[in-house]
């Protein structure tokens, strides 16, 4: 699915990724975690082709992504900040993204799930932050791509929508998809993810199941295990 080898990226003089290797070749939910500035966003943006790596190779579904844009048909992306052209209506925005991707979509089910019908003819600038995030989720989940990348998907959601989001993620996992998630909410991560990929100083520090992480750190819950992992010396 995703194969990354020797990925290097510097912003100015500041190295963000230094020789990162990562292979994800099965379905499931992979949580990309790490302290602020550890390179999570840069890693995700490199996979999406938004950041151009200094060195190293990335391939998605066996296709190298360098100077390629068609591979993004295989990826659905939920960006961290939902901000859309203010004078477009919700309906028009959904139509635009469908128009651009030209793939089959099931937005109606998602619109009903998040109760967005009353907002379809409203301008995006009039929506609240949480409603915008729901639109964002509809845009990311309405296509049927084998790879999903969700950047802080829980931002601004009310409890009911959060439950729907978790259901959607479970549903996608059952459809044998690969899902990459970043989040700072450990309870959410513990609930939805199969594998933890922990980044530290631009490299993968730990990759394995939540259970393995707990055993390694000697902690009983994920939040403490994550907090402990960065401070304890590694034996791996």
């Amino acid at each position: 699915m995703i194969h990354i080898e020797g990925l290097h990226k510097k912003f100015g003089k500041n190295p963000v990724l230094s020789g990162l290797d990562l292979t994800i070749n099965k379905e499931g939910v992979f949580a990309v975690l790490g302290p602020n500035g550890s390179g999570k966003t840069t890693l995700i943006k490199s996979i999406l082709g938004m950041v151009v790596p200094d060195k190293g190779t990335i391939s998605v579904q066996g296709e190298p992504i360098k100077k390629n844009w068609k591979y993004r048909k295989e990826i659905d992306y939920l960006p961290q900040i939902a901000n859309f052209p203010g004078n477009l209506k919700v309906r028009e925005l959904i139509r635009m993204i469908k128009d651009l991707r030209q793939s089959p979509s099931d937005e109606d089910r998602l619109i009903a799930l998040f109760k967005l019908e009353p907002f379809l003819d409203k301008k995006l600038s009039t929506l609240s932050g949480g409603t915008k995030q729901k639109v964002n989720i509809v845009l990311a989940f309405m296509f049927d791509s084998p790879l999903l990348i969700l950047d802080e998907p829980t931002t601004g959601l009310d409890p009911a929508s959060l439950i729907h989001l978790k259901e959607l993620i479970r549903e996608q996992r059952e459809m044998k998809k690969t899902i990459l998630i970043t989040s700072h909410i450990m309870q959410f991560v513990a609930e939805v993810s199969d594998v933890i990929v922990y980044l530290l100083e631009g490299n993968i520090y730990f990759k394995g199941s939540i259970e393995a992480l707990k055993t390694k750190t000697g902690q009983t819950d994920l939040e403490h295990a994550i907090a402990a992992i960065a401070t304890r010396p590694s034996h791996a």
Partner: peptide, 15 residues
């Protein structure tokens, strides 16, 4: 103003 939306577009299969 369209910085974030541009990022969403950059993640789509478009040049």
């Amino acid at each position: 103003n369209s910085k974030e939306f541009t990022e969403l577009l950059l993640a789509q299969p478009i040049k």
